Simulated scan of single mutants.
Amino acid sequence: MDESTREFLDDLLTTPSPSGFEADVQRIWVDYVSEFADEVRTDEYGNAVAVVEGDDPAVAFTGHADEIGLMVNSVDDEGFVRLSRVGGTDRTVSKGQHVEIHTDDGIVRGVVGQTAIHLRDPEDEELEDIAEQHVDIGVESETEARELVDVGDPITFDTPIRELEGTRMAARGMDNRVGIWVAAEAARRAAESDVDATVYAVSTVQEELGKQGAKMVGFDLPVDAALAVDVTHAVDSPDLGKEKDQHGEVELGAGPVVARGSSNHPEVVRTVRDAASERDLPVQLQASGRSTGTDADAFYTSQGGIPSLNLGLPNRYMHTPVEVIDTDDLDAAADVLAAFAADSAGRDGFAVDI
């Protein structure tokens, strides 16, 4: 990953984008793809589509721009902010965290309160739901708090990017700003290689609320295949213990993950695997006997069926403020997708041979 592409990744990761509030990160993504795309467009909810014009077939590389978070649900008499979830926020990691409340007038900082260990009953350590937790913004009354925040203001954890050893890094919201980075980078690399196929790069909104942006985009996206890039669980950390075998074989740093089964079209799977193999690009495999839980599940039932694939990016500690990825996996994923576009040029779709 060179300096400019790493700067792009850092800009995405440091820009808050909870579901329903993705505009700021979408602007960064649109600015980046505008440097090489022949056309860039957005829709009413902020989904963004870039097109690199070519011949048949047309293929799409997609990711979702939104992240999980919190939201101001109410303010109590003492000025403490009560919370609701945005997406699948984990109640086990929220307490004791620094947060930022994103208001119309700027950022209000606070902390999610946690009772000191000295004052808790050791026999009653039940985890409080998000709705029972609160943010302390330092005021003493409801009136003071309401002058600063409104109900419905989004909240994100204030977690900076941390460099770990080698090519590994930690941050919140890897899910799924790394996916829109790969989608953009794959399209850029395909454009620079002058591939003959038409390539769409797509950054969707509100995936964490039920793949809503992909449903909007998939309604009329004129493509022959859609490859959704999203994080997937790396199972090579000790927190999974003896249950590792239940979660597959995905490792951090061993390459992007090709899902097989369910929404993952067998011909698209084969083409991706062949493209990677011919270029000695690393890929891992993952069983997907039911849904993938990604935008691929929305694309593959659109328009009577778009051949689709979920390409996973290994991620430790998903849906926490300290998600860990390996940037080598991101680079490999972008190369694999660009190779897929090159090898797809000239073919007449991806229909299963019956």
Rank of each mutant, 00 (worst) to 15 (best):
V149R: 04
A338M: 12
V283L: 15
V258P: 07
W181S: 06
D236Q: 00
R260W: 08
A48P: 12
G255R: 05
G312L: 11
M318T: 07
V217M: 05
V195P: 00
V250Y: 02
P321V: 01
A287K: 08
A58S: 14
T232F: 03
R82K: 15
I28T: 11
R27S: 08
T5C: 04
R290W: 03
E3I: 10
R82T: 00
D105G: 11
H118R: 04
A190V: 01
D236N: 07
T92A: 11
I180Q: 13
P154R: 09
R85I: 01
G349C: 02
P266R: 02
H98V: 03
L70K: 12
P238V: 13
R260V: 15
N310A: 15
V235P: 11
L13G: 01
R162K: 09
E35L: 07
R279L: 14
R91I: 12
L309H: 13
L311G: 12
D280V: 07
T292N: 14
G152Q: 00
R270S: 12
V40I: 05
D245C: 01
V235H: 10
N310P: 05
T294H: 03
A191D: 12
L309P: 07
A234F: 01
E323L: 01
A23P: 00
N315A: 04
V111F: 08
L127M: 13
K244F: 02
S308F: 00
G152P: 05
A254Q: 11
V283F: 11
I130E: 05
D326L: 04
V199D: 07
R347W: 04
V51F: 01
L330G: 08
E123L: 09
D38C: 10
S262Y: 00
G96F: 00
P57K: 09
S17Q: 06
L337V: 03
D220T: 05
W181Q: 12
G253S: 10
V324T: 12
L148G: 05
E126H: 03
S288C: 13
S84C: 11
G106T: 06
E278R: 13
A333H: 08
S4T: 02
E267A: 13
F340M: 14
R189S: 14
E39C: 09
E207D: 12
V324D: 10
E142T: 03
R316Y: 01
Q212R: 15
E251M: 10
E144N: 11
I68H: 11
D196H: 14
D297L: 02
E163V: 06
A145G: 07
T301D: 04
D153R: 03
D348P: 05
A345E: 02
H118I: 00
A254K: 13
A332H: 13
D105Y: 08
I130Q: 06
E208N: 04
V33H: 13
Q26K: 04
K211A: 12
D224Q: 05
D230P: 07
G241K: 12
D335M: 10
V25D: 03
A287W: 02
Q26E: 07
I130K: 11
V336E: 11
N315Q: 09
P57M: 06
T5R: 15
G312F: 13
E22W: 01
N73M: 08
